[in-house]
Amino acid sequence: MHTFANTLTINAVLGGLHLGDMLVQLFFFLVLLLLVRKFAWGPVMNMMKQREDYVAGEIESAEKSRAEAEQASKEAQERLNQTKQEAQQIVEDAKNAGTRQEREIIESARKEAARIKEAAQADIQNEREKALQALQDKMATLSVLIASRVIEKEISAQDQEKLINDYIKEVGEEL
C-alpha cells in the first residue's frame, strides 16, 4: 500500500500529461527556434559562408595574380632579350661604320697624297722646262757674244747653230 502511494506521488511529481505544459513547450520551442535562427545561428552561418567565399575568392585571385606575374616576367625576359639584341646590333653597326669610315679616310688620304705628288711632279717638270728654255735663250745670245768677241771672225750660221746645240747638250747633261 505504501509503495502504491509512492507511485502516486511520483505521478504527481511527473504532473501527468498537462496539455497546457505541452502547448507552452511547443510555443516556446518554436519561438526559440525562430529567435535563435534570426539572431544567433543565421548571422553565424552567414559569417561562415562569407568566410568560405572570401577564402575561395582569395585563392582564385592569388592564382590569377600568380599567372599575371608569370606573364609579366616572361614579357620582361622577352623585352630584355630584344634589348640585348638591339644593343648588339648597334655596336656592330657602329663597328662597321667605323671600319668603313677608316677605309674611306685612308682612301681619300692616299688619293690626296697621289694628287699632291702628281702636282708636285708636274710643277717640277714645268720648272725644269722653263729653266731649260731660259737657259737656252740666254746661252744663245751669250755664246754668240762670247764667240764674236773671242774669235772675232765670222761664223756661218750653220756652225753657230751646231756649236750652240752641242753646248746646250753638255749643259743639259750636267743639269
Binding site: 504532473g15 501527468g16 498537462h18 496539455l19 497546457g20 505544459d21 507552452v24 513547450q25 516556446f28 520551442f29 519561438v31 526559440l32 529567435l35 535563435v36 539572431f39 544567433a40
Partner: peptide, 19 residues
C-alpha cells in the same frame, strides 16, 4: 487546460538561457 507552473517557468528559463 491544466498547467504545471513549474514546467512553464522552467521552459521559459531554459529558452531564455539558450537564447
Amino acid at each position: 487546460l491544466d498547467f504545471n507552473m513549474a514546467n512553464v517557468m522552467m521552459i521559459i528559463v531554459t529558452s531564455a538561457i539558450v537564447f
